[in-house]
């Protein structure tokens, strides 16, 4: 056995984590507050839509996904006080007015024959934005000082990827005609336009500046 008193490096040779990160505590908290707000709006919408979709398989998936996003909101809610925000509601806000308008437009479809629009808004526009914003945060934040956020991001991203795949497969199975392709594309375009204005989940700079 090796001498237990022999000096060893504090970081093993394979541990390449570094200290520097793109966000200070304040910026990290601001972004986390935006994330929580977006996750809340998403789980509320998914829950509300369950009663409005006639397709049984979609109904069940929306119910399942509703909980996942509520859990993400809860994880962010718990992270905020650890980032020195003792009143989590203060930072639980939309990144800007355009983001509020995006959510309003996304949650507008209600009729039973608008399942395509509902799913496109969530799985072709909103969830890809979650994946992008979370990936940017994961890759940019300090691997050591912000490790708790990284752990949360990894747990959440796993869900987001799975839900995105579920949603995309549901959309593909529902779209059967060129008219339905056009409907899906038109709705996506409408929502993407507002999202561009919003700049992403955390506003302009969600993915850094080019």
């Amino acid at each position: 056995m090796a001498d237990p008193y022999k000096a060893r490096a504090p970081f093993a040779p394979w541990d390449r984590r570094t200290l520097p990160g793109l966000f200070d505590v304040e910026e990290s908290a601001r972004r986390v507050g935006n994330f929580k707000w977006a996750e809340m709006k998403l789980f509320e919408a998914l829950g509300g839509w369950v009663a409005t979709v006639p397709e049984l398989d979609v109904k069940m998936r929306l119910g399942t996904h509703c909980y996942k996003h509520a859990w993400h909101a809860e994880l962010w809610h718990k992270r905020l006080p650890e980032l020195r925000e003792m009143n989590p509601d203060r930072l639980t806000v939309a990144a800007n007015d355009a983001m509020t308008r995006f959510v309003e437009a996304m949650t507008e479809p209600e009729a039973a024959d608008q399942t395509i629009e509902k799913l496109v808004g969530v799985y072709r526009v909103f969830i890809p934005r979650f994946i992008a914003a979370y990936t940017y945060h994961l890759n940019g934040t300090s691997e050591i000082t912000d490790a708790p956020t990284i752990r949360t991001l990894k747990l959440i991203l796993q869900d987001e990827f799975e839900d995105w795949r579920d949603g995309e497969m549901m959309i593909q199975s529902l779209i059967e005609t060129p008219e339905e392709v056009a409907r899906a594309a038109a709705h996506q375009q409408k929502l993407e336009t507002i999202m561009i204005e919003a700049g992403g989940l955390a506003g302009p700079g969600t993915l850094g500046s080019q």
Binding site: F43, E44, L46, G47, G63, T64, C66
Partner: peptide, 27 residues
């Protein structure tokens, strides 16, 4: 349960934790 997540404003009409419970019930 899904409608309870949607129908009520968080905190002013229904606590955040209650809505989380309702979302769990959805699953």
């Amino acid at each position: 349960a899904g409608r309870t997540c949607w129908d009520f404003e968080t905190e002013t009409e229904a606590p955040f934790a209650l809505k989380l419970d309702m979302a769990r019930q959805c699953w």
